[in-house]
Amino acid sequence: MRFLIILFLIQRQYNKNCKFFLKSSDNYQLIVADNRGLKDGYSVTVQATKMKRSDGVRVLVGNNIKLTNPTVTPIDNTVSTLYSPTVNESFYVDAVDLNGNSIPTVVEIAPAKKAGLSVGWTVTWNDSHISLNTAPGVAAVGNYQTIITWTLNDVPEK
């Protein structure tokens, strides 16, 4: 389990739907190396706490941090793409259900493989593929933060 904290600074209040991107030099990677020697696959889920302003007064409801269009590359170039994971092309890190409760989102599912084979994949999201989306009048000026939890799950072969 890895934790990642992303900070967004909202510099003024907007009265329309807004989308903010990270600066162009930022890249975020999810790297999974499966050296278990088992045939089982794996999945990765992500879940985040609600974004809170630093003073704790303002809270964003959810469905704000969006990741899109990742690139997937093998850690070792000798691995067949047959074992390439399926990666969600567009999802909210801070997804919520109809009651506003935080729910996990599947990010990556790797298929079963040959026993004894070690595989690893790097999933990368760069600057323009990580955005903060807010509804009109919801986010007030300030620093907002959330804690993002990535969970690696075992997916037994069927």
Score class of each variant (00 low, 15 high):
residue 85 P to A: 13
residue 106 V to C: 02
residue 93 V to I: 15
residue 96 V to I: 15
residue 85 P to D: 12
residue 88 N to M: 09
residue 79 V to P: 01
residue 80 S to L: 12
residue 84 S to M: 13
residue 85 P to S: 10
residue 87 V to N: 01
residue 89 E to S: 15
residue 99 N to V: 04
residue 79 V to W: 05
residue 108 E to Q: 14
residue 108 E to F: 01
residue 93 V to C: 06
residue 105 T to K: 13
residue 83 Y to N: 06
residue 92 Y to S: 02
residue 89 E to K: 13
residue 94 D to G: 08
residue 109 I to V: 15
residue 101 N to P: 00
residue 95 A to P: 00
residue 101 N to W: 03
residue 83 Y to V: 08
residue 89 E to A: 14
residue 80 S to G: 07
residue 95 A to F: 01
residue 79 V to I: 15
residue 79 V to M: 05
residue 83 Y to R: 02
residue 79 V to L: 11
residue 87 V to A: 08
residue 93 V to W: 02
residue 106 V to S: 11
residue 84 S to T: 09
residue 100 G to I: 12
residue 99 N to L: 13
residue 103 I to C: 05
residue 95 A to K: 15
residue 81 T to M: 08
residue 98 L to Y: 10
residue 80 S to V: 06
residue 95 A to G: 06
residue 95 A to Q: 14
residue 90 S to L: 06
residue 110 A to D: 03
residue 109 I to Y: 05
residue 97 D to E: 10
residue 86 T to F: 08
residue 97 D to V: 01
residue 94 D to R: 01
residue 110 A to S: 15
residue 92 Y to W: 11
residue 82 L to M: 10
residue 102 S to T: 15
residue 79 V to K: 08
residue 101 N to I: 07
residue 104 P to V: 10
residue 107 V to L: 13
residue 101 N to R: 09
residue 89 E to R: 12
residue 88 N to Y: 04
residue 81 T to L: 11
residue 106 V to T: 15
residue 107 V to E: 07
residue 90 S to I: 05
residue 90 S to Q: 12
residue 93 V to N: 02
residue 110 A to H: 06
residue 85 P to T: 09
residue 107 V to T: 07
residue 100 G to K: 00
residue 97 D to R: 03
residue 85 P to N: 11
residue 109 I to G: 01
residue 91 F to L: 14
residue 95 A to E: 14
residue 102 S to F: 03
residue 100 G to Q: 00
residue 97 D to G: 02
residue 98 L to C: 03
residue 103 I to A: 07
residue 90 S to T: 10
residue 87 V to D: 00
residue 84 S to H: 05
residue 88 N to L: 10
residue 90 S to G: 09
residue 110 A to M: 07
residue 82 L to A: 13
residue 80 S to Q: 06
residue 88 N to C: 08
residue 101 N to M: 11
residue 105 T to C: 04
residue 79 V to F: 04
residue 96 V to Q: 11
residue 84 S to F: 03
residue 90 S to V: 05
residue 108 E to I: 12
residue 93 V to R: 00
residue 108 E to H: 01
residue 109 I to D: 10
residue 91 F to H: 06
residue 106 V to W: 03
residue 88 N to Q: 15
residue 80 S to E: 09
residue 79 V to Q: 10
residue 99 N to P: 00
residue 106 V to A: 09
residue 86 T to W: 06
residue 104 P to H: 11
residue 108 E to Y: 01
residue 103 I to H: 03
residue 94 D to N: 11
residue 81 T to Y: 12
residue 91 F to G: 04
residue 83 Y to C: 04
residue 81 T to P: 00
residue 97 D to I: 02
residue 108 E to S: 13
residue 97 D to S: 08
residue 102 S to W: 04
residue 106 V to P: 00
residue 99 N to M: 09
residue 83 Y to P: 01
residue 99 N to W: 04
residue 100 G to N: 09
residue 94 D to Y: 01
residue 100 G to F: 09
residue 81 T to H: 08
residue 96 V to Y: 05
residue 89 E to Y: 04
